[in-house]
Design a protein around this nucleic acid. Structure first.
Lengths: 208, 208
DNA sequence: GCATAGTTTATGCAACCGCATAAAAACAAC
DNA sequence: GTTGTTTTTATGCGGTTGCATAAACTATGC
């Protein structure tokens, strides 16, 4: 029999198994028995830690988006940087692994339809989407202020939508062609494009 | 019994039923019986027109991407326009229904994991992705030439990646917040952003 | 009008699904 | 080491899955 483990360990191990299963075989293969197989336990155990299959899927979605968010924010947390440097690091993190990987894109794509039907999962999605949008807006606001630019709320929102869209789109392109694309050049394209959108250099090496 | 129909009609009706089913309930609910229910026939009929369930899914994916591609290219086909106008129309089509709808995004998200595991579906995806990439590159190439700009192949590729990414990212944002976003402003953001990326106005009304 | 070919349905099968329940095993307290 | 609690497994149930097959139905040629 599998050795007994602390509740928190087991719970997060089951969540990790769920994410691995979905990324590798898709949401249709994410059955209770298959997830249990990935975790090396028997299927009944999942019902001991989660109320239902929907329960573990919601927990997995929450965990996935949280990790994605922290992967980006870990790059700018706790260090004293100029606004331009903070924006540059944030953009670079969003153009690098572990965010730009086929695994993260596949997880996102598998969960999106669930978040469109299940209201609880829709709430999770909205929560982390709002936090990401705020982060972009604040970073852009500060970076522009550093150059003496003070756009009004509407103009700031439009710039944020454009930059956010650019990063999301490059994320898709990068994740889908991870092997054929040079990472350095990919990041240079992103930073350069962001500089043009904002009309302000986001890194010292970016051409205008 | 359902009235008998010509093979082509029945086949495309089954494909449409498949797409409707996937968009509404997700790929996990796209069972042979459920798809047959959407089409108003019994489940055995699907095996008469398609070799297997994978067969109808592949046909549906092919049909979906083809329609998406044609929705964009229908905007610039067969009319005598300047390069800038062609690019503007192409971008606008990619920022409007039926491309920017939650339905198309959901279909894309549902199929993507399949295209990552099934080699036949991967081929379909690569085919249409390549055609879209070429279209963007050619349109950008012509629009720049109209302003006397002749970037080398590498620079043109970088610009295409950036604009393509921007449009894809805005597509996601637009489809996910279709009700809260003003369509006119959304399109203006996209055209304005593309103008900045290219360093050239893509429409007469676009600010620089 | 009737044989023939082409469509559609009806039915069944083995495998799998989520979930419930009870037994078994692992651990902690003393 | 015995007792009691928590974690894990084992097993089963009703329903659903993809797929195969045969029967029933519809249209067409003559």
């Amino acid at each position: 029999m599998t050795t007994r483990r602390a509740s928190n360990d087991r719970e997060s191990a089951l969540i990790d198994a769920t994410l691995t299963c979905i990324a590798r075989e898709g949401i249709s293969a994410a059955t209770v028995r298959n997830i249990a197989g990935y975790a090396g336990v028997t299927n009944g155990l999942i019902r001991f830690y989660f109320k239902s299959k929907d329960g573990i899927l919601r927990a997995a979605y929450q965990s996935f988006l949280e990790h994605l968010f922290e992967a980006a924010h870990g790059a700018i947390d706790g260090s004293y940087l100029s606004a331009a440097e903070r924006l540059e690091r944030y953009l670079l993190a969003n153009l690098s692994p572990p965010i730009v990987t086929s695994q993260s894109l596949l997880l996102w794509a598998n969960f999106l339809p669930l978040a469109h039907r299940d209201e609880a999962m829709a709430d999770i999605r909205r929560h982390w989407y709002a936090r990401t949008t705020e982060a972009f807006r604040d970073l852009i606001h500060e970076a522009l202020a550093e150059h003496g630019l003070t756009p009004d709320d509407n103009e700031l929102r439009r710039l944020s939508v454009a930059v956010n869209g650019l990063i999301d789109g490059l994320w898709i392109e990068g994740a889908l062609s991870a092997e054929s694309l040079d990472v350095q050049e990919f990041q240079a394209i992103g930073l350069d494009a962001a500089s043009r959108l904002l009309g302000v250099p986001v890194s010292r090496t970016a051409a205008s």
